[in-house]
Design a protein around this nucleic acid. Structure first.
Lengths: 79, 79
DNA sequence: CGCTATTCTTCCCGATCGGGAAGATTCAGG
DNA sequence: CCTGAATCTTCCCGATCGGGAAGAATAGCG
């Protein structure tokens, strides 16, 4: 998987769901692995904007993902 | 500014505060620009894990930053 | 078309968010 | 010391979060 820019909660949710499917996990299993409730994971995947930041970090981390912050114009090819 | 990996809310807060200082803005002004309350911005900068994701996206966007998600092993030089 | 797996919705409920404003605290100068 | 700027804390309070579980609604597949 290559780095992907996420501009809103919805983009992040799509990305997480896609990766979860790639790993062939259902929400209940993935939520268990990530240490969050199934309802939370579903809401996150659906782009709910009010989910808590800390839990989002937790989910991403356990899915093997990392967050990078870059100037808006930046692209992976730039460096 | 070069891309930076953030592994937890605290890292994100530090990054935002550093950038705000670089722009010579105080919290009240920056919060106004970002469209959030001053208390929220302070909490975000201090790494509060329960802040809402949507507001975080909003702040980053208005500060000219963008979020990228990448596999944990990935480095900017990789691509 | 029918069945099962997966996801979404709803409930209960304690706990907390976030805006806004005022008061407290910190810290660098003069 | 005293002052002023910047940040943090506290308060009020309506609104909502998130866990867990059960039932409803979909989706996918033969």
């Amino acid at each position: 998987m290559k780095p992907k820019s996420v501009k809103q909660p919805r983009d992040l949710g799509d990305l997480i769901r896609t990766l979860r499917h790639a790993k062939q996990l259902d929400q209940a299993t993935a939520a268990g692995l990530a240490g969050v409730g199934t309802r939370f994971l579903g809401e996150l995947e659906n782009g709910k904007p009010t989910v808590q930041l800390g839990l989002v970090f937790q989910v991403l981390h356990r899915l093997g993902l990392e967050i990078w912050i870059a100037p808006r114009a930046w692209r992976p090819e730039d460096e």
